[in-house]
Simulated assay, not measured.
Amino acid sequence: MPEDVSGIAVHHFGITVSSLKTSLNFWINVLGFELIGRDVLEDRDFVRDVTGVRDGSIELAMLAKGPHIVELLEYKTALGRKALAFQACDSGASHIGLMVRDVDATLRMAAPYGWSAFGAPQVVANGHWAGRRVVYLKGPDNVLIELVEPGPEGERRDIMLRATERRD
C-alpha cells in the first residue's frame, strides 16, 4: 500500500440550518453534543470567496461529541437562498450517521423538535452490519441523520473486521 502523504483527515461536518437557536437545542438536548464555539462572519467578501455565496453573512456554532465536530451555519443574509427538498437517493444528498444506544428512545426525544423517521427502525440482516438497527430521520431543515444502534455484539464486530482487512 502506498504511503499516504495527502494529509487529509475529516475535520468537521457542516450543516446549513434556518434557525441556529432551534438547531442548537436539538443537537445539544437530544443528541448530547457540546457547544465548543460560536462565531459571526460578517465580511461578505470573505464569505463569497470561501463559499461562493454572494452577499452572505453567517452565524455559526461548532459542536463536539468525542472527537467528532459538527458545524451549524445560519446564513443571516445571502442572495439566492432557498430551502432544499431532496430524497436520500438524489445525487448530492448527504447524511450523517450517528451511533446511539437506543434508536427508539432517540426517536421519541427527537419528535418534539420536528424530526421524524421515514419508517420503523430496521434490523440489518446480512453483512458486517448484521444485527444493527438503523433508521433515517429528517429534520425541519431537510437534514438527514441515520441512527445506528449496535447489534448484540456491539462494535466489537467492526473492530475485528477492520483488523482483518488490514492484514489482507
Rank of each mutant, 00 (worst) to 15 (best):
L31H: 05
L31V: 03
R38H: 11
R101D: 15
I28H: 08
K65F: 04
P2N: 10
V40H: 12
N29P: 00
C89T: 10
D158G: 10
R156A: 12
F118D: 12
A88E: 13
E42P: 07
V135D: 08
V70P: 09
F26G: 02
A117F: 08
A163Q: 14
A85I: 08
E153V: 09
L161T: 12
K138V: 14
L73S: 06
V47C: 07
I28G: 03
D4A: 07
E34K: 13
H95L: 07
E42S: 15
M99C: 08
V17T: 00
W27M: 04
V103R: 01
A111R: 13
L35F: 05
P67H: 11
T106M: 15
L137R: 02
L161E: 11
G92Y: 06
N29A: 14
L35S: 11
R166H: 08
P67A: 15
D43V: 05
D90Y: 02
Y113I: 02
L63W: 00
S57N: 08
R162V: 14
S57E: 13
N126H: 12
F26H: 02
A110F: 01
N126S: 14
R156K: 15
Y136R: 02
G32N: 01
L84Y: 12
V100D: 06
V134A: 04
R162D: 12
V47E: 04
E165I: 12
I159V: 15
G66C: 11
I15L: 08
K82S: 10
C89I: 13
S94H: 07
R81Y: 09
A83Q: 11
V70S: 07
R156C: 07
L63V: 06
H68S: 15
L107K: 07
G114K: 00
L24H: 04
H12T: 02
G80M: 02
G32T: 09
I96T: 09
D104G: 10
R101Q: 15
R132V: 08
L79R: 11
V70G: 13
A105T: 10
G80C: 06
